[in-house]
Amino acid sequence: MERAKQFFKTWLLWDMITGLRLTLRRMFEPRTTVFYPEEKTPKSRRFRGMHALRRYENGEERCIACKLCEAVCPALAITIDIAEREDGTRRTTRYEVDMSKCIYCGMCEESCPVDSIVLTNIHEYHGESHQDLYFTKEMLLAVGDRYERQIAHDRAGDAAYR
């Protein structure tokens, strides 16, 4: 009986028909595609994207040139030079991130004692050459100025878990 059943199942292609039925049913089910540039999936507050250097509300840059980020960076993407400013504070003269080296691990952000270097949630940026992806201090500060609201919002929302 079992063998007869097996025989008919094989020759009537029963398993194949089952499979075909499944794919046919799938064809009429809703699709999960997200049309990317027009539609976007929500991003986490902890998303690690493009770098930025933040400022205090009075316009003073946060970075105190402690070089912790440079030390912790596993990809050696950060380069920092230091000098004393006229007012006697310790500041960077050079703060550069090589985006083509960066692995977006977020350790620089974690190590920063003053929340100066942060990874924003922007991932849609590009450069046409290697130089374009070498971010200088001015560029990083500009990014921070531009997206400060978003950065602050993300940090505030995530503060409870840090």
């Binding site: 064809m27 089910e29 699709r31 595609t33």
Partner: peptide, 10 residues
């Protein structure tokens, strides 16, 4: 298109 449809995409 057909193969996309069977895989829940377009």
């Amino acid at each position: 298109r057909v193969i996309g449809a069977t895989q829940w995409r377009y």
